[in-house]
Design a protein around this nucleic acid. Structure first.
Lengths: 140, 140
DNA sequence: CTTGAGTCTCCTGTTGCTGGAACCTTTATA
DNA sequence: TATAAAGGTTCCAGCAACAGGAGACTCAAG
């Protein structure tokens, strides 16, 4: 099948599928006489696989690794689990960071009158000469 | 003061401060005879301000806007609040997305034996021909 | 035969920097 | 005074992961 159909089945933009072919992540089975990329079932499955893994936050290099594990019948599930758990830890860290951020932003936004006057706790917070340690303040 | 000190006080890499000068976000007060960028108190304050706003997830254009509000004595706090609340909503959406992701990844990771055998629910999940709707599955 | 949809390659732009090369200024020390 | 180290300067390239568009093609239908 041609790239359009493959892309549709994988739930990816055509541009992305072409990109994946370019970087050698998921190569088409071959080319038609007209020079069109030709995808078959296994390639579409790989595309779907990558599409899912990407949505799970795995980077392209990580997808490459996962894909090779996916294709490897002799793999050990421990290898996959290791990858997943590292990703999970990174995700947790990012989540905590974002949550703290959100909470503080919510706090200053609530404190801001939001009227016609110029006083604004949000700007004050950004301007303040307080802590500058981490990526966000704890100030419990 | 020279760029190095300004950067240190603002808690930013020198490269970044130079970049901010290039894009006209925070311009130095002037140049020394030797051609060195010369920063003063107000510019350092602006740098700190931007540094903080960036950590809160505001984009460069948004920082530009916040900065102009910050400098504008006749501003209305409503303008700032509007920006902050939009950012908050975006943050919440992103958080929910990430949380769902995290939960599902945790689920499959837990289900994976992580031993020497090749069976792996994680890969199965990526390969599966189930839902392909949203950026992540609900499957409650 | 023509039209239109889909495909091809190639180039540029995105966001917010970061690293490096090659050179220049300033400061401290021998 | 010479010189070396530290810290400036400019410019150019590259990162992730594509997206948009130009200009040329292939292919199926009418």
């Amino acid at each position: 099948m041609k790239i359009g159909e493959a892309a549709r089945e994988a739930g990816l933009p055509v541009k992305t599928v072409r990109y994946y072919a370019d970087i050698g992540l998921v190569a088409p089975q071959g080319r038609s006489t007209g020079g069109y990329r030709d995808y078959d079932r296994p390639e579409v499955a790989r595309l779907r696989f990558v599409s899912r893994a990407r949505r799970f936050g795995f980077s392209i290099p990580e997808c490459r690794e996962l894909l090779s594990l996916y294709e490897d019948d002799g793999r050990e599930s421990a290898d996959v689990k290791r990858l997943a758990e590292a990703k999970l830890a990174a995700l947790d860290a990012r989540l905590e960071e974002l949550t703290d951020l959100r909470d503080e932003l919510a706090r200053v936004a609530t404190a801001c009158a939001g009227d016609g006057r110029p006083d604004c706790p949000i700007l004050d917070r950004f301007a303040g000469d307080g802590d500058d340690q981490g990526p966000l303040s704890a100030e419990s």
